[in-house]
Amino acid sequence: MDRRTFLQRCLWAVGTLGISSGAALYFRDRRQSSGPLPTFRDHRSGLQIPGGIVQVHGKDIPSMVEIALKPFGGMEALIRPGEILLIKPNAAWDRTPEQAANTHPEIVAALVTMGLAAGAGSVIVADIACNDPRKTFDRSGIRDAAERSGASLVIPDTFVDVAYHGSFIQSFPTGRVFLEADRIINVPIVKHHSLTRATLGLKNWYGLLGGRRHKLHQMIHESVVDLAVAIKPTFTLMDATRVLIANGPQGGSLDNVRSMGLIAAGTDPVALDAWGAGLLGLTPLDLPFIRLGRAAGLGTHEYGTIMREEIDLEA
């Protein structure tokens, strides 16, 4: 081998090694970097939203939503122009709107429309379903509602460990999209749940989690409150237009669905959950997560004391 060949081969070797190392580094860099875990920001910061809750009874969902927000200053009070607004419905199950397992799509559509009208830079609708997310968003009508009204529907596919610093949940894999929003509106549905007796607003934050989140069921009340303390939403609007009163949380038979024509809205998540528990015929303080949420300073279970208005559009 002469010098020229030797040098040529060296160059080839270095080149090959360089390219393959570059590829290896590229793939390695896609892993999550170490460092302090992210946390949720305060989605109410910089806003002056009046306290209390409001109850609206009616049939026409868009106007119910509109009226429910009015005492708080309307959607304009919840976001600033250009901000990213995230709507978090309960879209957990591959069920139709009539089966009352997921948030009513018309409520999602109304909030998206109002958000865009109020100048939101973009509106995202996202949830992490228990069933297949594509089927869930389709059958629940929420994909159609979101896309029809101009939101982007996101099926979270990247997860980051988020610090919750709770009594039970220290950190947990969480859909990244939820961290990217400026404002979050929680849009849960009132329904029966076999283990916790009710699925309401506080428990809706389960839908942000990836990983094997079902292991949290062993300390479900503590977990629910840990999440609710760490995730500070801008606002909560609770769907009780029709209520699943048995065989929850996914239902199936329409025999267990009661049409109630109600929604409630406000900034006190404990009061709203207590209100929902009342609809299911439960005593709020019988529900451990309401007791724990109250103890954690999230709000009051005596929702009647902070009820600002009870509006009946049918009257």
Partner: peptide
């Protein structure tokens, strides 16, 4: 003796 019943929650039939 730990609470769980995830299986019952997930069961899709009605009645479960």
């Amino acid at each position: 003796n730990r609470p769980c019943t995830v299986c019952e929650e997930m069961c899709p039939t009605d009645p479960k």
